[in-house]
Design a protein around this nucleic acid. Sequence first.
RNA 1: GCCGGGAUGGCGGAAUUGGUAGACGCGCUGGACUCAAAAUCCAGUUUCUGAAAGGAAGUGGGGGUUCGAUUCCCCCUCCCGGCACCA
Length: 881
Amino acid sequence: MQQNYSPKDIEAAVQQQWEAAQTFRAADTSDKPKYYCLSMFPYPSGKLHMGHVRNYTIGDVLSRYHHMKGYNVMQPMGWDAFGLPAENAAMANNVPPAAWTYSNIEYMKQQLKSLGLGVDWSREVTTCKPDYYRWEQWLFTKLFKKGVIYKKTATVNWDPVDNTVLANEQVIDGRGWRSGVQVEKREIPMYFFRITQYADELLQDLDGLSGWPEQVKTMQANWIGKSYGVRFAFPYELDGKQDKLWVYTTRADTIMGVTFVAVAAEHPLATHAAKTNPALAAFIEECKHGGVAEADIATMEKKGMPTDIMVTHPLTGEQVPVWVGNYVLMSYGEGAVMAVPAHDERDFGFAKKYCLPIKQSIAVKGQEFSDAAWQEWYGDKENGVCVNSGKYDGLNHAQAVDAIAADLNAKGLGEKKVQFRLRDWGISRQRYWGCPIPIIHCPSCGDVSVPDDQLPVKLPENVVPDGAGSPLAKMPEFYECTCPQCGGKARRETDTMDTFVESSWYYARYASPQCDTGMVDKVAAQKWLPVDQYIGGIEHAILHLLYARFFHKLMRDEGLVQGNEPFKNLLTQGMVVAPTFYRDLEGGKKLWINPADVDVEVDAKARPVGAKLKSDGLPVVIGGTEKMSKSKNNGVDPQAIIDEYGADTARLFMMFAAPPDQQLEWSDAGVEGSFRFLKRVWNFGAFIQQIKKANPQCDEDIQKAAGIYGKHIMGSPSHYPKVARREIHLILRQANYDLTKQQFNTVVSAAMKLLNTIGELPPHGKEHFEIILEGVSILLRLLSPITPHIAQTLWKELGYGDNILAASWPQVDESALEQDEIELVIQVNGKLRGSLRVAKDADKATIEQSALAHEAVQKHLNGAAAKKVVVVPGRLVNVVA
RNA sequence: GCCGGGAUGGCGGAAUUGGUAGACGCGCUGGACUCAAAAUCCAGUUUCUGAAAGGAAGUGGGGGUUCGAUUCCCCCUCCCGGCACCA
């Protein structure tokens, strides 16, 4: 065993042992219970970032912990390989996305291996390879025939200069990122997954996901947004024809307060009115400008313009004006809304702006209705009752909705309706680097899905896109084809699928990654699914996780998988953040400087007072602490950390710096602290080995061997063996408890305390030495999932066994925890005033008496009698003066 | 704007879920070792007050419940994630 801790040597050696022994091959047949541990697979962007390191370390810790607990663990890895960045890189470097992607995968795979992850690489999955996406195409054709996939138009961001559809990310302040020109909304045909058909099930099944964080379930439930309301119509006559304008509302009780109706710019009524109204036509044109992102639409200034169309209020018969509003979305609900300024915040603002009438129809007892008071109770569902509402006066929310829905129903103008906020999932993308949609457009047969025997529809891999629409649409050799039904000339669909489709089912593919007879091997899927533990960033809380849950249900309904949910337990990890530094440049721009190139100056109390660039010694501005990103140049390259300190240090720091679900702040000093701890572990191991080389059966030899080192490694001989052993097992108990909570930062704390404790017990003789050996064996096993290389090396070197992964997980010896006397805290009026030692089984009366007799209590009572004494067994006594 | 989180010493964080606030680590200060530095080890380190013993304040801000609140309730501020074509 080397005297000095050299992670480079031991990590490479241990990784070779694992590889040679195929330690992490997951057995399809095993007597042990299975544990499928899945981390969200990476997008192969080029190199690993800290977020990856954090994600995969958490997964590896859980995998190794369960391995040692006796589970048959499967931890697979793969590549979410289709996506927009590959096209951007292709354009920048003139390399086909395929070549760029494959070379990134090659490099990142080496990086993942150097982290020492216990991954079963024989199950690797790459989504841009035909053997993967062919099954996605196969499922598409099944669902298309079933009607779960259908075609309709949808609104996209259109760049009128580059003539291309833009992703929301490519729209900056309403302008195309390359052209700089204002983007427009455009309607194009797309294929949709009918996810709304599963809305109720997706909502209800959240209740069964006890292993998911509440916040994620709440977000998903709100996203699905089930609401109970009323769909009803305003009849109208236009050009001599009778028609109805439909709206949906959850506040039918306010229907008597309607003073106008607002429709989307794309609504047929708006289009009709604009024909004879140039100003309105111009406004509608203006509404087309800007992106489609909901956040932009929700925060933009609410604007509107009247049409000359009037519709009839379904209950009062009054004439109500129709306005066009830029905040009404055609794609949501009916594309039209009733407006009740008195009882809706947005309508109120709109009515004030355009001087539209405000008609109160709800009142809250004891409260005056006025503009000033308005915000307090305008929409009060709980306490409000109808007023100025004729026959509905005095009814509360629920009663009024019932009565109004019944009356609308009787007139044939409406009914109660459950509605979801969730919209169907549009998956067509006008991009090259994605999975081709397996549809053929035939002039006589229409849209025909590609037959099984013609799958996969392969994506050509040698193409460099040019940023002006999909290159596939310019490749006759790709799109020219014959109709599978009539054999006539036809055109292949050139759109590709949303990359969320690939990531919605990869977890199932890992069960049988090489299966070439189906999407999954049903037996293997049944064995491994559901995923026992899924780990990934909180940013995926809604979209990815909802789509994957939806896909699981689709696959279930195809008979491919069993069970209703794909992920039993979910851990959402926080982001990795770092400080930012910059200098102001001309034109308001900023030059972002990497933290590694900056020296921070601190005052006597270690508060940062300024920062200087290392290279020129001149000041830089200290920015905020933000998510590591290229744009803020505050990323720390994990490879540099691994090269300098080793994977174990990187992993240890990641686990120690913050609980897994919270944001993690990068700190160079913290990394050094982690490294220091591992050095101390190593040095202590070397020390123990020295003693063991003497005769460990003999007290004198142990003492002599300890003497060789001059002194024991740390601390003073302050501990009696019984106290030390109790401490060791108390620490272990805490660590085991924290592991069940998946709170790894305190598990690391426990390991540090453990080393401190055993380091303070000098090996003066056999009894002490045996406790130290027990403590070391617990320490190494606690560390093993987190820092596997050093733990394995010391485990073997110190003669505990050949393979620490085969060792059992340490158990608390309850008998070591027992003690005769316990210490109670004494409070007076809830404030700490002293402590009291009592027998562990002392009764309340005795404790009360001793507490009242306590010097500090006497002092604070100042001669008066205690009003009350609260005794919390095993914890404290509170005397109320 | 809507939905979901978060805020505790100079810093990252802990507090077994209503019972000793600040575990563990970083940083800083002092000391040992050294010709010196690094490394390592030892001691101290919430703030104010005090020579000390002690006392007081204190978990983003304001209110409330309780013998007792970082923890529960109400209101507010700031920061972060998501918002359907980034992944």
